[in-house]
């Protein structure tokens, strides 16, 4: 098990990572999720041994302080692959095995096995310069997995790819991690990616971990306003303000997902101030009477134009409770 406790990294007077604790049990995947500049990549590099910090990084109870990066047995996948340009695909994948002194026959077998696993069987002799972006990341993944690292560290592994490829590779990556039973720590700013890949998610902001939980927990119950906004709630407000729709569905702070409000025959009226086309719906920004600026969705067919008057209905499924969940409520939900 990887255990990080009280880890801080400073650059001069700037604290990039402050007093972070988390654990990654064997065979599970933890995503470090946060906006760019929140310190998540620095945290990952400190775990790898590439940054010097204070606090402890432990593997199975053994403190890794003073263990240099090449003896930690932690694999690392960079955002842009960082493949060795002077070696072919097989040479890249075999690199870690050579460092470990694995016999040739075993090495070749392992390389073939991994290239199959990442869907690049038959590409062994290709030059890395000839690969597409997605193929490069697959090779980088195979290279990091080949020496059977204790932990695999992935730094924004899919961010350099375009959207369609990213989504497909995220599914493949989740499969590879599951099949190989790898313990992994993945850094990403994309919550879809985090929820696809990870068993648990740690939301980071300004160098600190704000919330840790399963994707469901984090998604269903953001710990504070900022986290709710980062997870896609356009507005965070007091549930009482939703009284304009009738009986409020919850109490306390709530976040409105875009799908919480939709155009339809409802009690609240407003004017459309902007519209954005999304894949299967149109996202509107509406200046709503008694509610202020809110996001709302409409079907693509007959979506209202900017300036149009619309009515809004509330979908309680899109209203998320925000704040520290009390122990009682968690237990209640578990019983449900």
């Amino acid at each position: 098990m990887l255990a990080v406790s009280g880890l801080s990294v400073r650059y001069g007077t700037v604290a990039a990572v402050s007093d972070v604790d988390f654990e990654v049990p064997d065979g599970s995947v933890l995503a470090l999720l946060g906006p760019s500049g929140c310190g998540k990549s620095t945290l990952l590099r400190a775990v790898a041994g590439l940054e010097v910090g204070t606090g402890s990084v432990c593997w199975d109870g053994v403190d890794l302080s003073g263990v240099p990066v090449h003896r930690r047995g932690f694999g690392l996948v960079f955002q842009d692959g960082q493949l060795f340009p002077h070696r072919d695909v097989a040479g890249n994948v075999a690199f870690g095995l050579r460092m470990a002194g694995t016999p040739r026959a075993e090495r070749d077998a392992r390389v073939g096995e991994l290239l199959e696993l990442v869907g690049l069987g038959g590409h062994a002799a290709r030059r890395v310069g000839e690969l597409s972006g997605g193929e490069r990341q697959r090779v980088a993944l195979a290279r990091a997995l080949a020496p059977r690292p204790r932990v695999l560290l992935l730094d924004e592994p899919l961010s350099a790819l375009d959207r369609a490829l990213r989504e497909q590779l995220a599914v493949d990556l989740a499969r590879v991690l599951r099949v190989s039973g790898t313990t992994a720590l993945v850094v990403t700013h994309d919550h879809d990616e985090a929820f696809t890949l990870a068993d648990r998610v740690a939301v980071m902001r300004a160098g600190r971990v704000r919330q840790v939980g399963t994707p469901d927990e984090v998604w269903a119950h953001p710990v504070d306003d900022e986290t709710a906004r980062f997870l896609g709630c356009g507005r965070v407000l007091d549930a009482a303000e939703l009284a304009v729709f009738g009986d409020p569905p919850r109490r306390g702070r709530v976040g409105l997902r875009p799908s919480a409000l939709r155009v339809g025959p409802g009690p609240v009226h407003g004017e459309v101030t902007a519209r954005v086309h999304r894949r299967d719906h149109v996202l509107l920004v509406v200046a709503a009477e008694g509610l202020g600026r809110v996001d709302a969705v409409a079907g693509i067919a007959a979506a209202p134009q900017v300036g149009a008057r619309v009515s809004l209905v509330l979908d309680p499924g899109g209203v998320v409770p925000v704040g520290q969940p009390s122990r009682v409520s968690i237990r209640d939900r578990a019983i449900e």
Binding site: A48, L50, V69, F78, M99
Partner: peptide, 21 residues
């Protein structure tokens, strides 16, 4: 690229090995 050298290090190459490889 410094990160290319770091990639080699995470794969188990010591400081001298990184130079050689």
């Amino acid at each position: 690229d410094e990160r290319l050298r770091q990639a080699a290090a995470t794969l188990g190459a010591g400081p001298w090995r990184v130079w050689r490889e």
